[in-house]
Design a protein around this nucleic acid. Structure first.
Length: 823
RNA sequence: GGCCGAGUGGCGGAAUUGGUAUACGCGUUCGACUUAAAAUCGAAUGAGGAAACUCGUACGGGUUCAAGUCCCGUCUCGGCUACCA
């Protein structure tokens, strides 16, 4: 006897799809388009995990659903292949990352096919393919040309023994993870993208996005706009300390600390090479940023960050040693350590500043609770209004003045600042997209001409980074040399000049900041993307993922706005609808991890005999798409039983009651039992269709289960089975295809008929004072007649016993099929 | 500390947005089939109670004919963020 054999059925249909390519998308203008994509995966050696399956199945359900509905659907696939795991593996084994990546991709492709995903395999992209990263480099050059890719000195962790930069994770409580030597912060030149240029627009456009509120809020917080003012404080120099001392009682408090340090000498230091004399921080002013310029009357001291560029100008002979020591200690601390230790620390710089509102001289401190990278790196401390300033004031015995508030604009210039910083994109790594820049003898950067792209990653033997903290690329001596055409300013002639290539590569997020546009013309040799294909397909209609809430999803919005400004994109937001789904945890509720040994391998689930359809349907049924869920092996069995019931209903219908008399054969049946089937069928079509539209896949599956349960009770007509197969196909495409073939039907998505959603008689709920007391079967047409319905209800003995004293009023709610009698 | 979410049976979770609380699945129990088991099919399953009924959506109030849903307060748990001036 034939029984449900998912493995056999799935092999059959996967072979069919592999030869007929039914999911290939081309531009067709008489059909509405639908562009669906998941966040493309990093193809790890471990293969697909259950999280991938959830991610890809959501896209697959939508792909098949919209295809069945007649949309022209594009569902491509890609691999985000640059990154540390492949490079570290190469360092360890000497096997080229290119090779490992190719193996992993081929494994991912095989597994994706094993899951029956409806992918257009002609639109497969790989970010480490030179044909792809050529255009990543092109994107970089566009940003560079517009001044949005630039170099800047920034502090990095540096191990003086190993002579290398270290990532935050490679620093263990202030020491190098390799040699154990104390690390220091070193200023190094790095590449940045100027995302802050778009901060306002990125913020303003968030509200209109059809994205989860959680993500929108996270992006808003990340951008973190603060509206305030910048205020200049004059620094008191030697001989000018006679600045009008106030004689008010308020100021007498603050004069105490000033007097004790009255005789100091400000000298200009020359020792600290960190000081950049081009900086606009004048040695006679400290510019602070505040969101509360109205509290300036209460500002009783200033605080600058340890990294504050003008710090050296503030020091005196008395304070220099202490301050330098404090600064060095602070630079050793990681951001995390600074945050963990909330105990305020700091030292007096030796200088005073004049509060422009009170004309008081107030001391200037250096303290690590002020961050160099935010605002101006200096604050006016108002201990009466700010908890952190108060804490500091109390510790250092500084005056706390409850001064009156004043007009915000009196002493400062309005200024908006952002928490978001520019995007640091250079990586001292081999396995990334080379930055298309070369340096002349003076060290000035020059862009690689576009006709020389791609700057290929050279094949090398030893992937170990070199001793200077640069990537292994620095050792590819032949590759480093490049001839760059230079136009002579005077003669206009072009000559070639030998230069040295940039050895940093791009942050992987750069590669994924434009891939959604590449999908529109994935093999385009002439451009990063084809404007006609872009106009047809983009923006993405639904994008599905579980990660990168701010990073990737902010960067791609930034690039979209940038390329829209250049005229390359006809839209300013790349993603219309975002589904941000939850994680799947281990059965014990904890995160799956190799070390805990609680990983569920999706391929094991398939090969255990459940098959891909069960796996897919289970992961859609597991819970609301946006929530985390715990894997439950027993529920997997429940879904298998459901599919088995579908199979039996279709292929073994003789084994159970299936009354011939309810086969409706397309004609309207008069038999009331058959009418019941039609109602259930129409309700199911409506429920599944609207649930998928709302991305409520769990209840869509539940509705199908309910439908099957009803069909077992009532018996199933051929039409019932066809509808079941069509509705099932997005979730369990192999089984559904097998059923549709057997039933000789197409997969065209069915529609429901509103006239079949209600039966002639309905069950009316009767409440007394809001409590359920009885249920009456009444004609649907009577629902409009309140008096009659009330009379019927009062005649019911179960109601009558509560209404012997009469009723005050009667409320009929036809929509809810409910009558409430108030006594 | 700040900003979001969320608290519903033994468990995962439903509830046309104010209208029958617990759909669907798991688990459990009983029955059918079987020499037996598995599989499959059928039935029951919030608590208390013989029943009528009563009580039940974290806790305490409120609005309403009617509250899981709305309002006020409290508690608990998650997520993000964090000395951002």
């Amino acid at each position: 006897m034939n029984r449900y054999d998912p493995i056999k059925i799935e092999q059959k249909w996967q072979a069919v799809w592999d030869t007929t390519h039914p999911f290939k998308a081309t531009e067709v203008n008489n059909q509405p388009k639908m562009f669906l994509a998941e966040m493309f995966p990093y193809p790890s050696g471990a293969g697909l995990h259950v999280g991938h399956v959830r991610n890809f199945t959501i896209v697959d359900v939508l792909t098949r659903f919209y295809t069945q509905q007649g949309f022209n659907v594009m569902r491509p696939f890609g691999y985000d292949t640059f990154g540390l795991p492949a490079e570290n593996y190469a360092i360890k084994t000497g096997i080229a990352p290119q090779e490992v990546t190719e193996q992993n991709i081929s494994n991912f492709r095989k597994q994706a096919k094993r899951l029956g995903f409806a992918i257009d395999w002609t639109r497969e992209i790989n970010t480490s393919d030179p044909e792809y990263y050529k255009w990543t480099q092109w994107c970089f050059l566009q940003l560079y040309k517009k001044g949005l890719a630039y170099q800047k000195e920034s502090y990095q962790w540096w191990c003086p023994v190993d002579q290398t930069v270290l990532a935050n994770e490679q620093v263990e409580s202030g020491h190098c993870w390799r040699c154990g030597h104390e690390v220091e912060k070193k200023k190094m030149k790095q590449w940045f993208f100027k995302i802050t240029e778009y901060a306002d627009e990125l913020l303003a456009d968030i509200d209109a996005l059809d994205w989860p509120d959680k993500i929108k809020t996270m992006q808003k917080n990340w951008i973190g706009r603060s509206i305030g003012a910048e205020i200049d404080f004059d620094i008191v120099q030697e001989g000018s300390k006679s600045t009008k001392p106030s004689s008010s009682s308020k100021s007498s408090k603050s004069s105490k600390s000033r007097q004790s340090k009255a005789n100091h000498t400000v000298t200009i230091a020359t020792s600290d090479s960190d000081i950049n004399r081009e900086d606009d921080i004048s040695f006679r002013h400290i510019k602070v940023f505040t969101t509360r310029p109205d509290t300036i009357m209460g500002a009783t001291f200033l605080v600058v960050a340890p990294e504050y560029p003008g710090l050296d100008y503030l020091l005196t002979d008395d304070t220099r040693d202490t301050v330098i020591k404090y600064k060095q200690d602070a630079l050793k601390k990681s951001e995390i350590e600074r945050q963990e230790n909330k105990e305020k620390t700091g030292v007096f710089t030796g200088s005073y500043a004049v509060n422009p509102a009170t004309k008081e001289q107030i001391p200037v401190y250096v303290a690590d609770y002020v961050l160099a990278s935010y605002g101006t790196g200096a604050i006016m401390a108002v201990p009466a209004y700010d908890d952190r300033d108060r804490e500091f004031a109390e510790k250092f015995d500084l005056p706390i003045i409850e001064a009156d508030l004043i007009d915000r604009d009196l002493y400062g210039t309005p200024k908006t600042t952002y928490r978001m910083r520019d995007w640091l994109i250079s990586r001292q790594r081999y396995w990334g997209c080379p930055i298309p820049i070369a340096y002349d003898k003076e060290g000035n950067p020059h862009p690689i001409p576009e006709d020389q792209l791609p700057v290929m990653l050279p094949e090398i033997q030893d992937y170990q980074p070199d001793k200077s903290g640069r990537s292994a690329l620095a050792k590819a001596t032949d590759w480093l040399k490049v001839q760059i055409p230079i136009k002579d300013e005077k003669t206009g002639k072009i000559h070639l000049e030998e230069m040295t290539r940039e050895t940093d590569t791009l942050d992987g997020y750069a590669c994924s900041s434009w891939y959604l546009w590449r999908y529109a013309s994935p093999h385009d040799k002439a451009a990063a993307w084809d404007p006609i294909a872009i106009k047809y397909w983009e923006p993405v209609d639904v994008y599905v993922g579980a990660d990168h809430a701010v990073a990737h999803l902010l960067y791609i919005r930034f690039w979209c706005k940038f390329f829209a400004d250049l005229g390359y994109l006809p839209f300013r937001e790349p993603i219309k609808k975002l589904i941000y789904h939850g994680y799947i945890n281990a059965p014990d509720g904890k995160k799956m991890s190799k070390s805990k040994g609680n990983v569920i391998d999706p391929l094991d689930v398939i090969n255990d005999g459940y098959g891909a359809d069960t796996l897919r349907t289970y992961e859609m049924f597991i819970g609301p798409v946006e929530l985390d869920a715990a894997w439950d092996p027993r529920s997997v069995g429940g879904v298998y039983r459901f599919l088995n019931r579908c199979y039996n209903l279709c292929f073994k219908s003789d084994d159970f009651a299936s009354p011939e008399d309810i086969r409706d054969n397309g004609s309207k049946p008069s038999d009331p039992e058959a009418k019941q089937n039609i109602i259930i069928r129409n309700k199911t079509i409506k429920k599944v269709t609207t649930d998928i539209h709302k991305y409520q896949f769990n209840t869509a599956v539940a509705a199908l289960m309910e439908y099957v349960n009803e069909l077992y009770k009532q018996g199933a007509s051929e039409e019932d089975l066809i509808i079941l197969a069509k509705l099932l196909k997005p979730f369990a495409p192999h089984l559904a295809s097998e059923m549709l073939e057997h039933l000789n039907a197409t997969d065209e998505w069915p529609s429901w008929d509103n006239q079949y959603l209600v039966s002639d008689t309905i069950e009316l709920v009767v409440q007394v004072n809001g409590k359920l007391r009885s249920k009456l079967t009444v004609n649907a047409s009577d629902l409009s007649d309140k008096d009659n319905i009330t009379k019927l209800a009062l005649a019911d003995p179960r109601i009558a016993k509560y209404t012997s004293d009469g009723i005050k009023k009667s409320i009929l709610v036809p929509k809810a099929k409910l009558l409430n009698l108030v006594v």
